[in-house]
Write a protein that binds this DNA or RNA. Sequence first.
DNA 1: TCATATTACATAACACTGCTATGCTTCGCG
DNA 2: CGCGAAGCATAGCAGTGTTATGTAATATGA
Lengths: 206, 206
Amino acid sequence: MARTKDPAVRTLLLERAAGMLRERRPVTLRGLVEGTGVSTMAVYTYFGGMDGLWRALRQEGFVRLAARLAAVRPTSDPVRDLAALGAAYLENARESPDLYRVMFDATFDLADAGQADATLLRLVREVERAKADGRFRDDVEARDLATQSWMIGHGLASLVATGPLPPQAIGHAVPMLTALFTAAGDEAGRCRRSVQRGWRVRHSAA
Amino acid sequence: MARTKDPAVRTLLLERAAGMLRERRPVTLRGLVEGTGVSTMAVYTYFGGMDGLWRALRQEGFVRLAARLAAVRPTSDPVRDLAALGAAYLENARESPDLYRVMFDATFDLADAGQADATLLRLVREVERAKADGRFRDDVEARDLATQSWMIGHGLASLVATGPLPPQAIGHAVPMLTALFTAAGDEAGRCRRSVQRGWRVRHSAA
DNA sequence: TCATATTACATAACACTGCTATGCTTCGCG
DNA sequence: CGCGAAGCATAGCAGTGTTATGTAATATGA
C-alpha cells in the first residue's frame, strides 16, 4: 500500500526509553527522539503516543522477567526450584528497579494482565510438580500457593525498589518462603534446605 | 512581621486534593485551586510547589493509617491483635487505594521514612508482646517478623490497589500470616484461630 | 501610634509537556 | 506506470508546573 514501518526504529526507541529509565532521566517525548534523527511523530506511528510507549515498556519488562524465569532449569527438587524462581524474580527487580516500578505502578491493562498471568503460570506449574512429588498436601490449591509466593516476591521487590526497605532486606524471602511452603505440607527441615539451596544459586554470585 | 498564613487554606487544599484523588480526577495545580477563590500561588506559599503537596498528601496518608492502627484495641491475644493490625492495614488501603499508591509509588522521602517507621513500630511492639506471652520463640527477632508481616500486607495491598489481583484476593492474608506466625513458633491450630479471629473483626462488616 | 519591612497573594509570562494539524515524501500495488 | 496510502518532518496548540513582578495587608520596633 505505502511506505512500510522499520521495526528497527521501534526497538531503538524502546531501548532508548529503557536506557533513560535506567539512568533515572525523565522519559519525555522530545528527549526520547533527540539525537536519534527520528521525529516525534515516530512515537505516534509506532506506539500511538506516550501511553503506548509505556505500555510497550511494561510488556518489555514482562518479557525480560519471563526470560529470567525460563532460565531457571528444573532440578529433581521442585521446592528448590520454587525458591530459585523467587530468587530470579527478585534479581530481575533489583537489576532494573525503575522498569519494575513501571510494570506495576500504572493501573493494569488487559495486555499486561495476560503477561502477568503467563509469568504466574510458571509458578503454578512448579507448585503442581511439588504436589506430584508429595511435598505439598493434596488439598493445597496450586494457584493459591503460587499467588501467595508471588505476593511475597512482589511485596519485597516493591518495598526495596521504592525505597522503604534496604536491598539486603531481600534476604527476608528465605524464611518467608520456607514458612509458606512448610505450611503447605513440606517437612520443615527439608523445606528449609531446599529453599536455601534454590536461593543461593542466584544470589551467591552477587 | 507581616501578613500571616491561614492554616484553613492549607487543610482546604489538602482535603480538595485528596478528594480529586478519590474521584480519580487528575490532581493539577490549576484544577486544584479552581473555584476555591485562592490563587495558584497559595500552593507555593503553603507547600512550596506541587512536590510539596504530594509530600503532604503522603504524610496525610500515613497519619490516617496510623490512626487506623491505633484504633485496634489490644486484647489478651497478641497474635489475634497482629492479624487485626494486618486487617486494619488492608482495610485502609482498600478504602483509598489511590492514596495508598501515592504513599508508596514515589521514591521515599526522609519524612516519609519516619512516618513509615512509626507505623512499623506498632507491629514490632505487638510481636514483642507475643514473644513475652510465649507465643513466638525467643530467637525470633521482633523487627524481622514485623517487617515480614508488613511485606505480606504491602504486597497484597499493592497488587490489589494496582489491579493485577481482585479485591477478594485480600483473603490470602489469613493463610499467609498463619504460616508466618506458625513458623515463628506459635502452635498451628491456636495460631490459625487467633488469626481468623483478629481478621474477622475488621472484615465481617464489609 | 505610626512607619516600615515582611509576608501573603494575584497576575502574567515562561519553559516544558504530550498531542495534532498540515504537508511532503516515499514506496507498495493494481 | 501512476495513484494513493502510509511514514514522517515541521509547526503550532492546549495543558502542565514554575517563576517574576507588583500590590495589599499586617505584624513589629521605635
